[in-house]
Amino acid sequence: MSDVLVVIGVGGMGETIARRLAPGRTTVLADFNETLLATLAESLTVDGFDVVTQQVDVSSRASVRALAQTAATHGPVTTVVDTAGLSPAQAPIEAILRVDLVGVALVLEEFAEVLAPGAAGVVISSSSGYISPGFTPEQEQQIRTTPADGLLALDAFSPEALGSPGMAYGKSKRANRLQVQEASALWGAKGARVNSVSPGVISTAMGRQELGTPSGAFMRAMVENSGTGRIGTPSDIADAVTFLVGPQASYITGIDLLVDGGNVAAVQTGRVPLPGR
């Protein structure tokens, strides 16, 4: 049996990552949108890839567990990439938390049960986590140690504390880094590694949708004042993911790789002020 690649979330970034990593593997594609799944699966199959699809709701433990178990029936699960996410322009606070926060925790927990030795995983987070307000040390410890099912009960993620979808998104992405750090020991016990990647402003459907919102001016300012001066592409992120799941990164686990063309640096050096400041 060939090795199994699992890609969760098959939008622009997920498709690019799947095409990069799929050759020679059985690729399990998963998404909430079954129409999108079927379209991409047909395209990849025509191009010669071995593809399996499964609808998944990453906010449901039962659904994520079923996906993990299905993947394991097709061979040793050696690569898992979770790109599933909702942006502030797409969803309200609770939905963002269920997908971007709880969904990540569920993928980390459930796939730890089916990993093959030597496996590697990547969670696609966001550079928004670097510019959102931080957590207290107590909150960080709670996030690290609370199972997925209890995360929404934490005070740090109450709708009153967050106040807006944008804050829910940024805080969820900041929490992803803590979740990956904590999961690195769980995955390490199975001989596996896990990291996250935080993209900057990327030209995907989600990214372009966000550029059209009131926060779009801030995003464009970050790009214009960044060291690269350009919007990123899905291929930029696929390059980073390919490195992190590959043999060259065998001593790298529990970290976040910021792939943003210098967007965050533009904010942290004061070239671009945060909105409201």
Results as ranks from 00 to 15, higher is better:
Ala22Pro: 05
Pro23Leu: 04
Pro23Asp: 09
Pro23Tyr: 02
Gly24Phe: 06
Arg25Pro: 04
Thr26Glu: 00
Thr26Ile: 04
Val28Arg: 02
Val28His: 02
Leu29Ser: 07
Leu29Thr: 05
Asp31Trp: 04
Asp31Arg: 00
Phe32Lys: 11
Phe32Cys: 05
Phe32Met: 10
Phe32Val: 11
Asn33Asp: 11
Asn33Gln: 09
Thr35Met: 01
Leu36Lys: 15
Ala38Glu: 10
Ala41Thr: 02
Glu42Lys: 04
Ser43Gly: 06
Leu44Asp: 08
Leu44Gly: 09
Leu44Ser: 08
Thr45Gly: 15
Thr45Tyr: 11
Val46Met: 09
Val46Tyr: 07
Asp47Arg: 09
Gly48Ser: 00
Gly48Trp: 02
Gly48Lys: 02
Phe49Pro: 06
Phe49Gly: 07
Asp50Trp: 03
Asp50Thr: 12
Asp50Leu: 15
Asp50Glu: 13
Thr53Gln: 08
Thr53Pro: 00
Gln54Ile: 02
Val56Tyr: 00
Val58Glu: 09
Ser60Trp: 02
Arg61Ile: 07
Ala62Ser: 06
Ala62His: 05
Val64Gln: 08
Arg65Phe: 07
Ala66Arg: 13
Leu67Phe: 02
Leu67Ala: 04
Leu67Asn: 05
Ala68Tyr: 09
Ala68Gly: 12
Gln69Phe: 08
Gln69Thr: 15
Gln69Asn: 14
Thr70Ala: 12
Thr70Val: 06
Ala71Trp: 12
Ala71Ile: 09
Ala72Phe: 06
Ala72Ile: 05
Thr73Leu: 08
Thr73Ala: 08
His74Val: 01
